[in-house]
């Protein structure tokens, strides 16, 4: 895609996002209050961080299905650090992210070396990590003691009225990952293997390094999502985040990340995330039953994908060389 086409694509998706936002803002007062927008941003953090990570693997034409289980495991691990080792909240989060990043990198390395399809491999880690989370939590929810809950308040505190620490971390992560993919060699390698593995290899790109980097980012961001969320909630559930994978992939798809890899932008993921958040928060805020959320998200996703395909088909027809006239 040319730069102009990418710009137009993001603009189309941004238009859709604004439409969804305005549609709900007409009926839900919190949608146009500063506090309400802050809550919307805050509520997007877990899916946003995870979606960004899984989006990077999708850009590399891979797929990390283990993100939900990894987030749950890192949540448990982080709270175990806080309760058992009595470390500070921030230190525990950082430790959790490092562990998740290392696990992600190792996962990427094994996939690159063995050549196992990442879908197949990460199904294994999805199941295994969930088991590990149950084991490490003793099959129970791990809690920060009630008397220490006040220490978690910094994650709910307002920053400049409209942000919180988690939402700023999420926005920072989006900016950093976008810059990494655009301006660094390692980042460009991730995009290159997604655009065409054979061509990338021929051009001297290290497939192994790109895979390690993509899965390390995905793992670290899933870990960050799990750690921040669990510290903020004051608890970690070994069976938590079971719907996270689906929501994160949905945000990516609405944002224009192609399942076959190599196409999409970090900005697109952010727009897709906000569209999803506005929709889910809006349906929930109207007091509609849960199935309405499923119906709304499913419908939106289908509309986006059909529109995307139609545009692509129209374009390919338009670009096709005219038949010679005899």
């Amino acid at each position: 895609m040319s730069r102009r086409e990418i710009f137009m694509d993001v603009m189309f998706r941004t238009g859709l996002m604004i439409l969804v936002y305005v549609g709900f803002a007409l009926f839900i007062p919190s949608y146009y209050s500063v506090r309400g927008v802050a809550a919307l941003l805050d509520g997007a953090v877990v899916i946003g961080l995870t979606g960004l990570g899984i989006g990077v693997t999708m850009l590399a034409a891979e797929f990390d299905l283990s993100v939900g289980s990894l987030a749950a495991l890192i949540g448990v691990v982080t709270l175990n650090f806080i309760n058992g080792a009595e470390v500070g909240m921030v230190t525990a989060i950082v430790l959790g992210v490092v562990i998740a990043g290392v696990f992600g990198a190792a996962q990427g390395l094994v996939i690159a070396i063995t050549g196992i399809n990442s879908l197949v491999f990460t199904i294994g880690s999805l199941i295994g990590l969930r088991g590990l989370a149950l084991f490490m939590s003793g099959e129970n929810t791990v809690n920060i003691p009630v008397q220490r809950l006040e220490e978690t308040d910094f994650l709910s505190a307002s920053v400049l009225g409209i942000f919180s620490i988690p939402s700023l971390v999420m926005i920072g992560a989006f900016v950093l990952v976008a810059a990494f993919l655009r301006y660094t060699v390692w980042g460009k390698e991730v995009l290159a293997i997604g655009g065409g593995r054979t061509e990338a290899r021929a051009a001297g790109v290290s497939i192994k390094r790109a895979m390690v980097v993509a899965f390390a980012i995905s793992g670290a961001l899933a870990g960050l999502a799990g750690a921040i969320s669990c510290v903020k909630l004051g608890s970690a559930t070994p069976l938590g985040f079971d719907t996270l994978l689906l929501s994160a992939v949905t945000a990516c798809l609405i944002g224009g990340i192609a399942l076959e890899g190599g196409r999409g932008t970090v900005t697109g993921i952010f727009v897709g995330l906000l569209t999803l958040r506005f929709l889910v928060g809006g349906v929930s805020g109207l007091g509609a039953p849960f199935w309405m959320q499923n119906l709304a998200v499913g419908s939106l996703l289908i509309v986006v994908i059909v529109a995307q395909l139609s545009v692509r088909q129209l374009k390919s027809r338009h670009d096709a060389p005219a038949l010679p006239v005899h």
């Binding site: 839900i28 007062p29 919190s30 209050s33 506090r35 309400g36 802050a38 809550a39 919307l40 805050d42 509520g43 877990v46 969320s229 903020k232 909630l233 608890s235 559930t237 938590g240 985040f241 079971d242 719907t243 996270l244 928060g281 929930s284 805020g285 007091g287 039953p289 849960f290 959320q293």
Partner: peptide
Amino acid sequence: FIETTRDQSEQDAAVQQELAAG
């Protein structure tokens, strides 16, 4: 009724959204 998934972080987001509505 404010229903969310069985994920506690989603339910927390719904709580914050409701409180923000005032």
